[in-house]
């Protein structure tokens, strides 16, 4: 379960201080898929950075399964990202000179999975997202956008993290493929009992979530 309380983050710009995340509080339950929608510049990505410990909040707290994450050191944050968070990016962000299989194995290496189990686990995850062994040997340049995003999902779930953060996961995909990716995310979340937080500006994606929040000028409100 993800619990966020009074989370704040501001940036100083030449035009003055900007409250990118302004007193945000919410709870997302285990196995639940939560959508956060909002226009560009509303603070979606900043909120995701804070939840993924890519950035530090100015104030407030983030807890996962009762564990407070606000006071972790830099190396503990890195460990947390390796073990407890899975990222799915809009631009897929696979490593271009590694095969699909190697891309998935990479996070297992960072999460200190036993060497002899990594290949099997990567194969298992790629199979889960519909990859054949032959496809697993391809590099990203030889995969379509949808296929690349499926590899990214396999990568995100590989370490069995309790939290998956997806930033516009369908943003670079066509409607039909996007639909499949969201379904895949839902299925994986439920299979692995993970909390999935999807940031999107696509209402069709948000409609498939269990709960939906809107963010505007850094303020979050539940809309359904």
């Amino acid at each position: 379960m993800l619990t966020v309380e009074n989370l704040e983050k501001s940036f100083t710009t030449p035009a003055g201080d900007v409250h990118a995340v302004d007193d945000v509080s919410f709870v997302a339950n285990t196995g639940e898929m939560v959508a956060i929608v909002g226009p560009s510049g509303s603070g979606k990505s900043t909120l995701l950075s804070l939840l993924g410990l890519l950035d530090a909040p100015d104030s407030g707290s983030i807890e996962i399964d009762g564990r407070e994450l606000g006071n972790l050191s830099s190396s503990e944050r890195t460990k947390f990202r390796a073990h407890d968070v899975g990222f799915v990016f809009q631009g897929f962000n696979l490593i271009p000179n590694l095969t699909a299989q190697e891309n998935v194995e990479l996070v297992l290496e960072f999460a200190d999975w036993p060497k002899d189990e990594r290949a099997d686990r990567a194969e298992e995850m790629l199979e889960m997202v519909g990859f054949t062994p032959e496809m697993a040997k391809r590099r990203p340049s030889r995969l379509s956008g949808g296929e690349q995003q499926r590899v990214a999902i396999a990568r995100a779930f590989a370490t069995q993290p309790p939290l998956i953060l997806a930033d516009e996961p369908t943003g670079s995909l066509d409607k039909k493929t996007g639909q499949k990716i969201v379904q895949l995310l839902r299925a994986a979340a439920s299979a692995q009992n993970a909390t999935v937080l999807v940031v999107t500006h696509d209402d069709r994606v948000a409609e498939q979530a269990d709960r939906r929040f809107e963010i505007e000028d850094g303020k979050l409100s539940e809309v359904g």
């Binding site: 993924g52 890519l54 190396s75 890195t78 460990k79 990202r81 390796a82 073990h83 968070v85 990222f87 990016f89 962000n93 490593i95 271009p96 990479l106 996070v107 960072f110 999460a111 990568r155």
Partner: peptide, 16 residues
């Protein structure tokens, strides 16, 4: 630069 950011985001320590 972007790839480095991705590696760090998915849990790669600086030393790696």
């Amino acid at each position: 630069r972007r790839e480095i950011g991705v590696l760090k985001a998915i849990g790669a320590p600086n030393k790696t």
